[in-house]
């Protein structure tokens, strides 16, 4: 319900911003497609794309048809936006969801061992990784990895083998999100370890690892979920990079091509799709949080 309201606000804000962007799609298309820039051509295109109507009417129309799965036609390709998206969405979703899932799965053991032995190997490695992922852009990591695996070792063919490209992309995306999550998790565990009740638990004879898992993990995991929430936005950027590096036809690559054409229908749909993704992550996070800490639900 509230998410629905949020979506409505987003859709309106996005519609307004996109409609107010400086360059005019009709002007751009006329030059790009070498059409004669007569008043008739301009008027015809405006009519065809529905740009001749008042802003609020356009928004209302768009909203109604959007809800019916009719997302308008791309100005650039002339194809229905919904179909263009459905062709590309599964791949992007796969990259984003698996990337973040793998990141969590890897962050937990690393963060746990780091907290158990502060200053130990895992702790120092995870800190190094966290610094590395913030000093090396994902496309550079990607290029080196592709080169090592594809050229030097010849283990796989990242460009002609679609599955390998997808797997590599997911690994890279998760690698770049994992470091932050592992640090947050370790931080959460450490904070809990300083609490009196943790010392009590220790005093009762639980081993470090067991005490940490039983008593500190829930609250630390809670912090991880909160961080995942924020990380979901970055993941979109990472998967866009991967789509371009590996030439994977996902929605972010489609977006970049559509941006310069000011393809309003595609941009609007993209905002909505990403908003839905964020809501999905949000719902999942809140569900997990309430399971962990029922007091908050």
């Amino acid at each position: 319900m509230q998410s629905g309201l949020g979506l409505l606000v987003i859709s309106f804000a996005a519609f307004a911003i996109i409609a107010l962007m400086p360059a005019d799609p009709v002007e751009i298309a006329i030059r790009a497609w070498n059409l004669a820039a007569t008043d008739e051509t301009v008027a015809a295109l405006r009519r065809e794309w529905g740009l001749d109507r008042p802003f609020l009417v356009r928004y209302g129309d768009w909203l109604v048809s959007f809800l019916q799965g009719e997302w308008g036609r791309s100005f650039r390709t002339g194809e229905p936006v919904f179909e263009e998206f459905m062709k590309r969405l599964p791949l992007s979703l796969l990259l984003g969801a698996s990337g973040i899932g793998l990141a969590i799965a890897l962050a937990l053991p690393i963060g746990f061992v780091s907290a158990l032995h502060p200053g130990g190997l895992a702790d120092r490695l995870s800190r190094l990784l966290s610094v590395a992922t913030q000093s090396i852009p994902i496309f550079a990591t990607g290029l080196v990895l592709i080169w090592v695996l594809g050229v030097k070792l010849r283990w796989l063919q990242p460009f002609s083998d679609h599955a390998a490209a997808v797997m590599l992309s997911i690994c890279l995306i998760s690698l770049h999100s994992m470091a932050v999550l592992a640090r947050v998790y370790r931080q959460g565990l450490q904070a809990a370890m300083a609490q009196p009740w943790f010392l009590t638990a220790r005093a009762k004879g639980l081993s470090d690892a067991r005490a940490l898992w039983r008593h500190a993990h829930p609250s630390a995991f809670y912090a991880v979920i909160a961080a995942v929430h924020a990380e979901a936005g970055w993941v979109i950027g990472s998967s866009a990079t991967m789509e371009i590096l590996f030439g994977l036809p996902g929605i972010s690559q489609f977006l970049v091509l559509s941006i310069s054409a000011r393809d309003q229908m595609v941009l609007q749909a993209y905002v909505m799709v990403v908003a839905l993704w964020m809501i999905l992550v949000d719902l999942l996070a809140r569900f997990l949080m309430s399971r962990l800490d029922p007091r908050l639900s």
Binding site: I146, W147, Q157
Partner: peptide, 11 residues
């Protein structure tokens, strides 16, 4: 750049 690597890797 990615294309150059694809060539190098025999793809």
């Amino acid at each position: 750049q990615a294309m150059a690597i694809a060539l190098e890797s025999g793809e």
